[in-house]
Computed example of a mutant assay.
Amino acid sequence: MSILNVLKKEKIMAMIRGLSPATTDQTLDALANGGIRFIEVTTNTDGAYALVSRWRTAYSDDLYIGIGTVLDVNMAKQAIDAGAQFLVSPNMDAEVIAYGIRHQIDVYPGVMTPTEIVKASKAGAKAVKVFPMGSLGGASYLKEIRAPLDQIPMIASGSVGLHNIREVIAAGACAVGMGGHLVNKQWIEAGNYAAMTKLASECVSLVKE
């Protein structure tokens, strides 16, 4: 099964961004204990590439670990060398997509408009990340652009949380990217990882219904 097909089944990709090195392992464990299997670590997280290398070894086939905020080919190279299983970008860069294709690694580029969605698909992206979802209008926007472009898998990212995850999936998202609405920095600072595990479990249960 391709990694995209697994993502379509799991539905949720959790994003770890800008956490201190002391909290990243506990955050990952909290998410995994809640049933999250896809983790995106952004390049503006301290030691992102080293984290991915270590987690790929530690978690083997239990989790899928990718790198986000991949802005150019140099970042893509470092991410793939570190063992990233997929790449995520906030923008659409044809060179990054092509690099991923050459190395048989999925790239999910960030897009906003129908034009960008089609360009990314033609460049070889197996799925696109519709971002920022909340600012674009949420589920209603996704539903409208999915009508003529339903052949292109879309991952909804930005302002997706427990409050709207079912609505976004119902609008046609093949999966969702979840940042602060799941990886809650206040809980992390307070050491309340149990709350994150509980929330993750609730989100997983919702999308599996």
Rank of each mutant, 00 (worst) to 15 (best):
G161V: 01
A171W: 06
G137D: 13
P114G: 10
A173Q: 06
K208F: 11
F38L: 00
S20G: 15
I67F: 05
S121M: 10
H163F: 13
T69S: 13
L206A: 01
A125W: 04
P132M: 04
L31C: 03
G134Q: 05
L142V: 06
T43V: 06
K129I: 04
L31D: 00
R37I: 03
A82C: 08
G100P: 10
V41Q: 02
N44Q: 12
G68I: 02
K185D: 06
G34R: 02
M92V: 04
S157F: 06
L136C: 13
V70Q: 04
C203D: 09
Y193C: 06
Y59F: 13
D62I: 11
V204F: 02
S135A: 15
R56K: 14
F86I: 01
K208P: 12
L63T: 04
I101Q: 15
K119Y: 08
A76H: 02
F131R: 00
T23I: 09
T113R: 11
G83F: 04
A123K: 10
S121P: 08
L182W: 00
A170I: 09
A139Q: 12
Q78S: 14
Y64V: 15
A14K: 01
Q85P: 05
L162G: 01
T43P: 03
S205V: 03
Q26Y: 11
A30N: 09
K143F: 10
S140T: 14
A139T: 02
F131S: 02
F86D: 00
K11N: 04
G179M: 07
V96R: 08
V204N: 02
K185E: 03
Q186E: 15
A123S: 12
H181Y: 12
S135E: 11
K185G: 01
G179I: 00
L199W: 02
Q26P: 08
G161S: 07
R146Q: 13
I105E: 08
A98M: 07
A200S: 11
S201Y: 08
T113M: 04
W187T: 05
V88K: 03
F38Y: 07
A120C: 12
D25H: 10
D46I: 13
D29M: 15
A48C: 12
A58F: 09
V107A: 05
T57G: 15
S121T: 03
S20A: 12
V130Q: 01
V130F: 01
I36H: 11
K8G: 10
K126D: 15
G124S: 01
I105R: 07
T57R: 12
K143G: 05
A175C: 04
R17P: 06
T69G: 07
I36C: 10
S157D: 09
T45Q: 06
E10Y: 05
T27W: 10
G191R: 05
I80C: 14
T197Q: 12
G110N: 09
L142E: 03
S20W: 11
P132A: 01
I16G: 05
M154P: 00
V111M: 11
S89H: 14
M92E: 07
M92C: 14
N74L: 12
D29Q: 15
A84T: 11
A32N: 12
A190C: 14
Y99A: 03
K119S: 13
T45G: 05
Y59T: 07
V130I: 15
G172A: 04
A30V: 07
M75K: 06
R17N: 00
E116K: 05
S157T: 15
L87S: 07
M15D: 02
F86W: 06
M112G: 07
I155Y: 02
I101K: 14
V6I: 15
V183G: 01
V41M: 14
G35W: 08
